[in-house]
Nucleic acid binder design. Sequence first.
RNA 1: GGAGAAGUACCCAAGAGGUCGAAGGGGCUCCCCUGCUAAGGGAGUAGGCUUGUAAAAGGGCGCGAGGGUUCAAAUCCCUCCUUCUCCGCCA
Length: 427
Amino acid sequence: MISIDMIKNDQEKVERAIEKRGMKIDFKPLFELDSKRRELLNKVDVLKSKRNQESAKVPALKKEGKDCSEIFKEMKMLGEEISSLDEQVSKVEEEIFNFLAPIPNLVDEDVVPGGKEANQEIRSFGEKPTFSFEPLSHIDLCKINGFIDYQAGAKLSGNGHWIYTGEGAELEWALINYFINQHLEDGYKFILPPHMLGYKCGFIAGQFPKFDDEVYWLDEKSKTGKFLLPTAETPLASMYQDSIIPEQELPIKMFAYTPCYRREAGSYRTEERGMIRGHQFNKVEMFQITTPEGSDAAFEELVSKAEKLVKGLGLHFRTTKLAAEDVSATMARTYDIEIWIPSMGIYKEVSSASNARDYQARRGNIKYRDSKTQKTLFVNTLNASGLATSRLFPALLEQYQNEDGTIRVPEVLQPFMRGKTVIGKGK
RNA sequence: GGAGAAGUACCCAAGAGGUCGAAGGGGCUCCCCUGCUAAGGGAGUAGGCUUGUAAAAGGGCGCGAGGGUUCAAAUCCCUCCUUCUCCGCCA
């Protein structure tokens, strides 16, 4: 959420940032609402002040045995005026909220305008692997090795669901453990949040109201109902809602492992077979809460942590800085770490690292107390996957396959697989 | 799922329609005393949001949240949330 003050202070800057997303917003109605609100508040506050003063006199008058009915009559009329004005105030405030809430975050100055085509690769690691034999796709590799049971998954839950079986499940779990271990070593706090969340979490994280159709609602979609988390970012962003964090506790560094549940309605189903896009996938999510001054460094840290994980697996990837239209509405900047999937001949996102600046903090009223001024200020929130397995797993199988269809286990995963160096029974 | 009780400031807690920005205690801060420590004495310790302004002064809101009754609500009524206790259910 952006604020009226941000717009007032530098309207040009705000407009520039929004234009980069290919949008245009006329703020005039907002300013009108704002001055109307002030006007109403000034009026009603004077009346309330008068009511308070008069009411304070009553006990003394009563003690003297004087008649107060005249005052009561007058105050009753005042009271009616007050409640009518109060009503107008809350209506205007609601309109202001409805105006501001859907406005996307302001992208950083250095984020270029445009869509996907304007994304810039900022660095890459490793090379596209070459094979001396005809490599198999991860789908075939899973089938011959019995890592994944797609058919049974579909039987249980329909399209977009799969079952990790045997060494496939072991590999999946080893990946998750490898991530968790790295984050613990880096001093991040381990969080296991609930998977069923209330509406407000979705609002704070910025997914609602726009994307409230893309999550699974456990009952009917409503402000009181619960939905299954689409990413652990949603609960992590909401953990500190309505609180003031002492500055010395910042930055807060944490991570969570959860499955992610997504409807993925209208996705590119044919291209994305296998586990590229499913309704449930595993992800470890990193999250940081920082001061505004600390958030750039935190962002770099998150990106490099995600890169380190992929590097550790020895997988070829590139890091891309997203152009404005590709940055999600909640975020000011996003870097994607994309991994090479040989059978598809494309890079797929395994981590998305973003700085929300104070956008989520405003939505969730998350503040910190500045140690010098003692003032309360909004925190910055940042998140990055670290990592999602559903793209990593296929890339790993394909990049680590042997000619006989077995899979070499990357060294970093071996400790989590009881020392195994090769998995699968092969062709 | 059912029944009951409770939610007041950093913590505990009084408060039962008007002078309650809310008693008291603990904690914390400062000072005094005691050669250290323990103990004692004194003073201070409500914020958050908002309005207003050049800055201020001043004003509004505030006792879990939201409504309502009333001239007036921490206090009465309703709804919701949370916590605790008891009962039920047991993956």
